[in-house]
């Protein structure tokens, strides 16, 4: 693993508080994930790729914004690994860069429909912007 990847891995682990080494590769996170089909990289891959320092592909993947943050993977992981927290940490490390907000106020009108609760917009801002 090169130095840059190692630093990135340490940062993600520190931000998330997750220890990916606890994973026993059972795949229950991906088995339980309701957004599985939308994702390019699945929850179990997030854990494995962070552990091996292969984080670059995750940073550029749309999967970061497909996670619903439903925490089903956290709830059911037998090893208390908490994959959703890793996804969040990787997402934050992208969003926190300058100009990398995933959602701006200008995007909202186009997304709005009558059935969308206001709370969804608020939480989307929390999730996708600095």
């Amino acid at each position: 693993m090169n130095k840059a990847n190692e630093n990135l891995r340490e940062e993600i682990i520190r931000m998330s508080g997750v220890n990916p080494k606890k994973c026993m590769r059972c795949g229950k996170c991906s088995a339980t994930c309701p957004a599985f089909d939308e994702m390019e990289y699945h929850p179990h891959q997030f854990v494995n790729m962070v552990e091996s320092g292969d984080i670059e592909p995750l940073l550029n993947s749309d999967s970061l914004y497909k996670c619903l943050s439903c925490f089903a993977c956290i709830e059911r992981c037998p090893r208390s690994v908490e994959p959703a927290k890793l996804v969040e940490a990787v997402r934050l490390s992208v969003i926190r860069r300058q100009g990398e907000n995933h959602l701006t106020a200008n995007d909202i009108p186009a997304l709005i429909d009558d059935e969308m609760p206001q709370q969804a917009i608020v939480s989307a801002f929390r999730k996708y912007t600095k």
Partner: peptide, 11 residues
Amino acid sequence: VQASDLLNNKQ
């Protein structure tokens, strides 16, 4: 039954 097939990377 919803399950993962890790070797094929499928749900």
